[in-house]
Amino acid sequence: MSSSRNPYKDDRGNKDRSITKSGGGELEYPTKGGKARPAPGGPFLAAENMTGGYGAADILHDCTLTVEKGQIAVIVGPNGAGKSTAMKAVFGMLNLRGGHVKLDGEDITALTPQDRVAKGMGFVPQVNNVFPSMSVEENLEMGAFIRKDDFRATMEQVYDLFPILKDKRRQPAGELSGGQRQQVAVGRALMTKPKLLMLDEPTAGVSPIVMDELFDRIIEVARTGISILMVEQNARQALEIADRGYVLVQGANKYTDTGEALLADPEVRRTFLGG
């Protein structure tokens, strides 16, 4: 794509495969990044009053998301509401104009995504969330890249959680089914033993049965004390397992309550859960 603003990005529509490889990353490189500051008290994750977007226009408006230790928080909302954008903001992949992110008693707003991984955050993006040409096992290894200790036990735990991955561990992740690939993606994020796991639509494109299974696994993960922040299209099922639910509309919090309460709210039911 050409861009009138940045001449370095202007490729004039050239798609010549013999000289260029398409599909580069979008993430800015972790060159500058600040330090974490202590900020005791409050919930385990508190992303408060986040405002910002990709360019000039803001996508998020004063958006707030919190998760308690070992609990599951679910974000639902219509397409384009800014759910993925909110997740990216929490993970430091977006320049925020306002608001801050606190994790486990520290203000991490200035940290790069890499530093946030080191602080105990794991993120499974909505798309492109595996290394397609690498085997399942190598995907998991890459998940543990920043770990200096022996991660074989963690890998066994992931295999216990998703037994199918053990059978397929020599197979390239790109050759797996959609559901299996999501399991690889979640498994990869678990390899750092995160304290907070962020999942952007982990059940996208998987059958209902697999979806129920994935939800069961996610509950299992939460039981081990890992906090979970998750975006879901299948709002009803997701809110059923949620300790806390957020309904996001146009980048702002529309409703916030426990999952149960949101499911019971006639207004939420009518507008977002289809009756």
């Binding site: 050239n14 798609k15 010549d16 495969r17 013999s18 000289i19």
Partner: peptide, 8 residues
């Protein structure tokens, strides 16, 4: 199917 003009 894909563009190979440069090498061509």
């Amino acid at each position: 199917r894909s563009d190979y003009l440069a090498i061509a």
